[in-house]
Design a protein around this nucleic acid. Sequence first.
DNA 1: TCAATAAATGACTATGGGTCATTTATTATA
DNA 2: TATAATAAATGACCCATAGTCATTTATTGA
Lengths: 221, 221
Amino acid sequence: MGVIERREREKERKRNTMLDAAESILMDRGLEHLSMDDVAEKAEVSKGSLYLYFQNKNDLVLGICYRATHLLNESFRSVLNSNGSGLSLVRELGKTYLHYVKNHPQYYSSMKFLDNLHSTREGTESEYLQLCTQNRQEGFRLMVEAIQRGMDDGSIKQELPAEQLALLFWSTSHGVVTISYMHQNYEHFKLLDRIGMKEEDMFDAYMHILSHGFAQEPKES
Amino acid sequence: MGVIERREREKERKRNTMLDAAESILMDRGLEHLSMDDVAEKAEVSKGSLYLYFQNKNDLVLGICYRATHLLNESFRSVLNSNGSGLSLVRELGKTYLHYVKNHPQYYSSMKFLDNLHSTREGTESEYLQLCTQNRQEGFRLMVEAIQRGMDDGSIKQELPAEQLALLFWSTSHGVVTISYMHQNYEHFKLLDRIGMKEEDMFDAYMHILSHGFAQEPKES
DNA sequence: TCAATAAATGACTATGGGTCATTTATTATA
DNA sequence: TATAATAAATGACCCATAGTCATTTATTGA
């Protein structure tokens, strides 16, 4: 009779309302000031209700993180849909990641939260954790795809399997993006200023080094 | 009369005792299970006493972080004291960082804590924060030195200022090290396994890419 | 209309960071 | 040595916040 289905839809809707409330608080106060009481108030439900829809605070934050990873993947996908050499696609992916962190620092902070989540806690598993992991895998897959295209069109060396190169690109760009995030969000982080490097230049330099290496090659092979 | 000096020494000794207690708890239970009550008990002092020696929990953790950064710098320094081309020193620095994370994961977690410390909180500044920052700068300086040597001995290209190249090496290796840390400490992190890459190979591949680039150069200049 | 079931509530507990009035130990002074 | 002054240490207490659960309210099916 469709009652159960309607209930299910309704439940999903309410869960999203709660996530909206949480997200709104995250956006203007940051993760470290996100309390369940505040979320309940903002969502105009009781605290107990929150716990009907989310296992615990982690679960709720991972709900936001799911949105965060999803949005990043959307951007990645649109890059993959554009034209250009594989190498240039890879570069665009990196730029996209960088822009993402600049434009959605709080989303990014929720992804850092995911990174810091310690090993599968006391039995109870968050469903959102699975979804986030899937999103991550999808994002990684897109990088592999860009690199594979580069290998096919001859713009990227084929010394390593595409997956392994993707891992290196992902991890190193993660590092560069981290610097950028700190530069933008932590007043006490002065490294870029100290060495007189503009943020915009950092990424170009990064791509340049990654593309051509920093080792001085002996004359010629 | 030296009373004040003696008091000062005594105070420092007690502070270290407390740090020892905190560190011991960190080592076998991890940062997220480090409570001030437990530290007080372990150190056999009252909770109130802890707060005579540390402004707050952050301050105490930063005290550990100071030790962590100091230890890393020691390792870096010993690399710089060895022989070899600048390029090989840089490689050794990276390896050292990797080994450090493997052998002192809890120290590394305290450094992540430092990285996540949000902007200068409500006036009260931790003295340890300054010290940690100094240590970081010193570590960075050592990287610059290795790179500069490489530029001098012709093993590293001179396209970029040494500081900027050091920044890139630091940030990218940070990213790689992060992957390694996750691989070792988070059961749910399966990326390396999924792409069939051994941890040991990752660093070699990283150094190879960083040294020679992944872009397919057009024939010859 | 009335059970039965589902959903929502908010007072309550537990934990852990941080405080402070009071107590205890140490030092300087008479 | 006795005593006042100062420094150090204490732990009961406060408060914020995650998480629970007996009770109440709403919805559904007969």
